[in-house]
Design a binder for these strands. Structure first.
Lengths: 202, 202
DNA sequence: CGGAAACTTGGAGCGACTCCAAGTTTCCGG
DNA sequence: CCGGAAACTTGGAGTCGCTCCAAGTTTCCG
């Protein structure tokens, strides 16, 4: 029963944070306000979330979830890994675009933190999905095998996040086109290299 | 003469910051200590640097400088852009590795900030170099022309920074191998795509 | 020389975050 | 059912980064 209470408090904190971050804005709401709205002491909030950033990271995790879902969808059996990646990205675009309006500059904070903290939280799920995709591709033969799948996934997600980050900074950034292009570049990077030049000694 | 004085103060602040960041450590030295060591009021420090992070960003800029130099070196006329990238990266490795001992966890903060702030400061120079490389490659014909060079550079630098960031987080990360692999993946991503499948409608 | 402009400074103040001792609540064995 | 251990909450004091501002002080220039 103690467990349920904790869970409930946590949920309330997240809910109030989401509400306040949306309307007065991230920078305009203090920890104290969130705590007060959730009916706990400010100090208590830090028992649940180590920082204000952690709070928003949790909230924004859902954004990556849609992308992860698209990536984890059963791949069309007759299409390449690269095509699957491109399609998943394209399909997740609307949700991403919508999240921008809701989360706004929050997302940027999340990206910044997530990009450097070795992919924890919502991002780790995205990394996992990309990793699975790469493994499957390697097994299937259209993804290079000379680099570990998890590292490939790391590179891929960094690339995606860079484009996302830029878009968040600059609304005029042509997200659709960029994502398309990013998918193409990543896809070609993952592809098993032609056995021509640019081979380094084993 | 006012100009010289300002420059001098700025230099002193940076010098003291470097010294203190090195020995007591970034988190263990306060703005007040730096200001005091440089013989100015804490408030004055903020006339020169907008934040503590900006201070360390300035310091770490030099690290990327060596990488930029390698990239901007005259390319061997008979080697591909991809090979040039790989070589530059490999050549910059020792300096990067050394910087880790000096700057330690600072570098991570810089990366985090730089990765999201649209490449200002030292990183913008790196981006510029990559951009030039891509333009040259496009002109030469071994870099894809269907994506703008500056965006390609963005993707490439994000990828490199991701690997760097991971290495900074985890000392056991095999940096040399990773960088080599990253260069290969990026190189293949930049390469002009084969006219086989995975073509999207114009 | 005298005033305008640039720069510095201390102080007040805010918000994130930490530490801790003193509650309060929940749990569990006897 | 009771009493104490353990878990959790809370207020308060304190630090640090950072902002704002009014009151200097210095530099420049007509």
């Amino acid at each position: 029963m103690r467990e349920r209470k904790k869970h409930e408090t946590r949920r309330r904190l997240l809910a109030e944070a989401r509400r306040l971050f949306a309307s007065p804005g991230y920078f305009a709401t203090s920890i104290e306000q969130i705590a007060q709205a959730a009916d706990v002491a400010p100090a208590t909030l830090f028992n649940y979330f180590p920082s204000k950033d952690a709070l928003v990271a949790e909230l924004a995790g859902e954004v990556f979830e849609t992308l992860r879902e698209q990536l984890d969808r059963a791949p069309a059996p007759d299409s390449s890994t690269q095509a699957h990646l491109g399609r998943a990205l394209a399909d997740a675009l609307p949700a991403i675009r919508e999240a921008r309006d809701v989360l706004g500059p929050l997302l940027l904070r999340v990206l910044r933190r997530a990009a450097s903290d070795g992919a924890r939280g919502g991002l780790s799920r995205l990394h996992g999905a990309l990793s699975r995709l790469c493994v499957a591709g390697q097994r299937r033969g259209d993804v290079r095998g000379d680099v570990e799948a998890s590292f490939l996934a790391e590179l891929a997600s960094a690339t995606l996040l860079a484009a996302l980050g830029h878009w968040l900074n600059d609304p005029r950034y042509p997200l659709d086109a960029r994502m398309c292009q990013a998918a193409a570049v990543i896809g070609d990077g993952l592809r098993v290299p032609m056995p021509t030049h640019t081979r380094r000694d084993p």
